Simulated assay, not measured.
Amino acid sequence: MIFSREYVGYLARQTVKQLIDAKMIRTEKLTVVQERVHGGLQEELSLEDRINEEVRVILEAYQDEMRRTGAGYAEMFKKVKTELARKYKAVL
């Protein structure tokens, strides 16, 4: 993940604060809302890490074929990652 866990927590708190200040949400349980927003942010931000790991596994399975055909790892990584992002409907 490109952000630290502490920064994601800060973003969650600030997001909830701004939503409350803008009167877009009301809550009696501020910490519960902050924890849920934090969890959602962390899930979304770690999606790219999970996709990258899946790409590595896929390319490892095809490494012999890639050597035979002369395909570059970086180029194939980019192509497979783009396809997986499309499959998961992720915006990276």
Rank of each mutant, 00 (worst) to 15 (best):
M76L: 10
E28Q: 11
A12Q: 01
F77S: 02
L45C: 04
E75R: 12
T15D: 00
E43N: 12
L45P: 01
F3Y: 15
E54W: 05
S46V: 05
I20S: 01
I25Y: 11
V55D: 00
L45M: 14
I2A: 09
R50N: 12
V32C: 06
V8N: 03
E75I: 06
E53A: 15
V91Y: 13
Y10S: 10
I25G: 04
E83V: 04
D64A: 11
A90W: 06
S4R: 14
R50G: 03
T27F: 04
R67V: 02
F77N: 05
L30V: 11
D21G: 03
M76H: 05
E75P: 02
A74W: 09
S46I: 00
L19I: 07
S4M: 12
L19Q: 09
Y7A: 05
A90C: 09
R86I: 01
R13P: 02
F3M: 06
R26Q: 13
H38N: 09
V80R: 04
L30Q: 14
R26C: 02
K17G: 07
A61C: 05
L59Y: 12
Y88D: 08
M76W: 05
Q18F: 12
E54T: 10
Q34H: 08
D64K: 11
Y7W: 14
F3S: 03
E48R: 14
L47D: 06
R56Y: 12
I25N: 06
I25W: 05
K81E: 04
K78E: 09
A74M: 12
Q14C: 07
D49F: 10
T27G: 02
R50F: 11
D64P: 06
E43C: 03
R26H: 07
V16I: 09
L30K: 15
M1I: 07
R36P: 00
M76E: 11
V33K: 00
L45Q: 02
K29V: 05
E44L: 12
R56C: 07
M1K: 14
K29G: 00
M66A: 04
E75C: 04
N52Y: 10
A61Y: 11
V80F: 06
R68F: 07
G72Y: 11
V8T: 09
E43G: 06
M1E: 14
E54R: 15
I51K: 00
K17C: 07
L30S: 11
L30G: 06
E48S: 11
M1A: 15
E54H: 13
V80L: 09
K29R: 15
K78S: 08
A85G: 10
K79M: 09
E43H: 14
M1T: 13
Y88A: 06
L45I: 13
Y73L: 10
L11A: 08
K17R: 15
D49Y: 13
M76G: 02
A12C: 07
G40N: 13
A22C: 04
E43L: 11
L92C: 09
Q18W: 12
R36S: 08
L47S: 13
D21V: 06
R5I: 07
E83A: 14
T27W: 07
K78A: 08
M76A: 09
E44P: 00
E35K: 07
G72T: 08
L41Q: 04
V55I: 10
K81C: 01
G70F: 03
I58L: 08
I58R: 10
Q34N: 08
E53G: 08
I58S: 04
E44R: 15
V32K: 14
A90S: 13
L41D: 01
V32A: 11
